[in-house]
């Protein structure tokens, strides 16, 4: 059994921050790709079987958090004979380095993948102060 654990692709979140959850059950770390383009930061997170309405993306100060709940599937009259993966909620948070335009963050969920598009905030333009001759 010791070897089996490593074969499971999903990684269980080691410590879910310092805040405890009220929902019981396992929490997984979604695997992510984070891509940077000229104008945006794009994040892809593998979160199969998530209830779309439960996806919660928050950005507070510089911390981006992703939360999503998965309703465990139970087939009546069937017995789970063999299992290689477990089902649980997803949680992960990241600290963002770049300035992100918070109001323009876009999120989409397709085929079990959450895509977040975070447009970079435009650098503040230097202000020119006019000198008026008196």
């Amino acid at each position: 059994m010791a070897d089996k654990k490593e074969e499971i692709q999903k990684k269980e979140a080691e410590a879910v921050d310092t805040v405890e959850r009220t929902r019981s059950g396992k929490v997984f770390f979604p695997l992510v790709d984070i891509m940077e383009t000229e104008k945006e930061i794009i994040l892809f997170a593998d979160m199969p079987g998530v209830d779309k309405k439960s996806i919660d993306v928050t950005l507070e100060k510089d911390v981006l958090s992703i939360d999503a709940n998965v309703q465990p599937v139970v087939y009546d009259d069937f017995e789970l004979d063999y299992a290689e993966y477990e089902v649980g909620d997803f949680h992960r948070s990241f600290t963002l380095n770049d300035n992100v335009d918070q109001k323009k963050i876009r999120a989409g969920y397709k085929n079990g993948v959450l895509q977040l598009t975070l447009p970079k905030a435009e650098p503040e333009k230097p202000k020119r102060i006019k000198i008026v001759e008196e």
């Binding site: 074969e7 499971i8 692709q9 999903k10 892809f44 593998d46 979160m47 199969p48 079987g49 599937v73 087939y75 009259d77 069937f78 017995e79 789970l80 004979d81 063999y82 299992a83 290689e84 993966y85 085929n111 079990g112 993948v113």
Partner: peptide, 23 residues
């Protein structure tokens, strides 16, 4: 690694195989 990970449910009349294939 075995990919995709699968779960197998069975009873006397049928089997259900589920697999996680995000993306």
């Amino acid at each position: 690694k075995l990919f995709p990970p699968v779960n197998v449910w069975t009873n006397q009349d049928a089997a259900i195989i589920s697999a996680e294939l995000p993306g």
